[in-house]
Nucleic acid binder design. Sequence first.
DNA 1: CCGGTAACTGAAAATCAATCTCAAATGAAA
DNA 2: TTTCATTTGAGATTGATTTTCAGTTACCGG
Lengths: 153, 153
Amino acid sequence: MATTRTPKPREGAQELHRAGLKATLPRLKILHMLESGEHPHLSAEEVYQRLRNTGEDVGLATVYRVLTQFVDAGLVIRHHFEGDRMVFEMDAGGHHDHMMCVKCGKVFEFHDPAIEERQRQVAERAGFVMEEHALYLYGVCEGMKKSGKCSKK
Amino acid sequence: MATTRTPKPREGAQELHRAGLKATLPRLKILHMLESGEHPHLSAEEVYQRLRNTGEDVGLATVYRVLTQFVDAGLVIRHHFEGDRMVFEMDAGGHHDHMMCVKCGKVFEFHDPAIEERQRQVAERAGFVMEEHALYLYGVCEGMKKSGKCSKK
DNA sequence: CCGGTAACTGAAAATCAATCTCAAATGAAA
DNA sequence: TTTCATTTGAGATTGATTTTCAGTTACCGG
């Protein structure tokens, strides 16, 4: 009766196994954090800090390793914002590009089929087989335009 | 009469002064290298190496400093290719985006007014004041598709 | 043409993000 | 459980870029 095994998040385990990864604690924790959607875009450092703040004991190296594995497994997408450290985000399927506020770091997402199509055409015209693209817009978000302070970040 | 490149770049001095910078040897050398257009996209390391190969005696730190000053002065544009080191290019005025071969590193330039316009619209719709954007396409260039070897890089 | 002075430079040290190393810990399968 | 390959954490390492600082150099005034 007292089969009280650790009452842990068995949910994510499936996902990890499907990806060919053992369902270890660090991996489950990180997967959870990204899936929660509370902070869709996180750097390795940020993931690390948040885990620590929650009292978890994971190494920074592990965070980097795991995030890279998630990217390789197609679970997560990695972004390289201008000059910034890299940030990670769950791959929810629907492709989208990003717009970042240079004042507060807030990130907006958007998708524009017309732009996508033009990109394809441009690549083709140049004799390229396009594999991927990175489109980032930088500017000042509504909140920062006036108030000078932004809710996010 | 030979209107070719001035062997001793006294020309650049004007440009530097206009930018509020003293016309020092390292700066003139670097400006010249970028202006020559022989290699439109160069990393700090590459600029440094090329200078050394020409027998010039400049420090790597100086190359980095000068390039950053040029960027701040609006003379040069800095790019951050996916995960790569940053590369610099003269700001010739006409804006353009880049397409890079993931096999050989060759860089193509292109400009698509339609894409630019859509970007502006997207930003506006999101309440952003767009300041800049970065659009990079990655793929396999014509040369690499077949031969497996590319003239460039 | 000749200083004086602030700007500039090179070399070495410092930073910073990201990766690697390796012994210890852990997951999963028998 | 027992085993064994995988995974982890801490710290060392790398590689790019930045900073520090003492020694130059460019440029303005005389």
